[in-house]
């Protein structure tokens, strides 16, 4: 039992760690990775806590997470395409407000 909660807490940790990186890291690739890590955190929490229904694990969260993984890869592909488009017009693959200009 307690291990399930341990995994759920790791999920929380991944979510907030990803959030921190999303906010402070300037490079878009890092931001995209950060969102993926946040997603993994949420998924971990969902599935881990589904294990509390012993003896049979609750599979509904598992189905939700499979859905979520597919959404995540779709979003990542879009984000990477946008990032490449952006870095063609401005170097560094960063959003304007993160650029170390003298503004």
């Amino acid at each position: 039992m307690s291990m399930l909660f341990f995994y759920a807490l790791i999920g929380v940790g991944l979510f907030t760690l990803g959030l921190l990186a999303l906010v402070v890291q300037p490079h878009l690739l890092q931001k995209i990775l950060a969102l993926n890590v946040m997603g993994s955190g949420v998924f971990l929490l969902l599935v881990a806590l589904g294990g509390r229904s012993q003896p049979v694990v609750d599979v509904v969260p598992q189905a939700m997470v499979i859905t979520g993984i597919v959404v995540a890869v779709s979003a990542t592909a879009m984000a990477l395409t946008l990032m490449l488009n952006l870095s063609r017009s401005s170097p560094g693959a960063q959003l304007p407000e993160d650029q170390s200009a003298d503004s």
Partner: peptide, 19 residues
């Protein structure tokens, strides 16, 4: 260029909101 960087910011925000 404007629309791509705006869309990128929009995408990051909307994904964060969904999560």
């Amino acid at each position: 260029k404007d629309s791509v960087s705006a869309a990128m910011r929009y995408l990051l925000s909307t994904l964060l909101g969904s999560l």
